[in-house]
């Protein structure tokens, strides 16, 4: 094997390896180059966050505008405190906007959806979204539904008598 062929193939091999790593970073892990520097932090407290986890997306009108960085328990209020990083170019979220925990599909992943309020002031870094709506827990809903059905049944019987 001539040295030149060896060198060319080694160069191609190194390039292919680095290319695969870049592809793993960008395509597979969805790493964007500048998330840390250009984002600001918002907090929201929920009664129940269901199965929301770190790295879940924060969406507004279905468009991802940020990520959940941490989920922790507020010991004083016994509420779940969600820490979110929002893209810096979405800097006009009104202060009376509300945050809800939604589910992608019936059994899909949980994410935070933000609905726009009407105020003229905008949320700044380190502020808290006050108006929140908890996750819908399927078991609770089924429980309520069954209870409601039973109550209605009783009421119907009562009318018959």
């Amino acid at each position: 094997m001539r040295m030149r062929t060896v060198e060319i193939s080694v160069g191609a091999f190194l390039l292919a390896g680095i290319f695969a790593l870049v592809l793993l970073a960008l395509r597979v892990s969805g790493l964007s180059i500048s998330t840390e520097a250009h984002s600001y932090r918002l907090y929201a407290e929920f009664d129940n966050i269901g199965s929301l986890t770190k790295r879940a997306k924060v969406a507004m009108g279905g468009v991802t505008i940020g990520r959940v960085v941490a989920v922790e328990l507020n010991k004083k209020t016994y509420m779940a405190r969600v820490v979110m990083d929002i893209d810096a170019n979405v800097d006009n979220i009104p202060v009376d906007s509300s945050a809800a925990i939604l589910t992608a599909g019936l059994l899909g992943e949980k994410f935070v959806g933000i609905s726009i309020g009407g105020a003229n002031e905008y949320l700044q870094d380190d502020e808290t979204v006050d108006d929140t709506q908890s996750a819908i827990v399927l078991e609770e809903m089924i429980g309520k539904f069954l209870l409601g059905a039973v109550n209605k049944d009783d009421a119907a019987k009562g009318e018959n008598f």
Binding site: L24, A25, S29, G30, L31, R55
Partner: peptide, 19 residues
């Protein structure tokens, strides 16, 4: 397929640790 993958795989804790 790709979206779920991107959301589940983290660069620091999955790709770099594998490396």
């Amino acid at each position: 397929f790709w979206g779920n993958m991107e959301q589940a795989v983290d660069f620091r804790s999955d790709v770099v640790d594998g490396l």
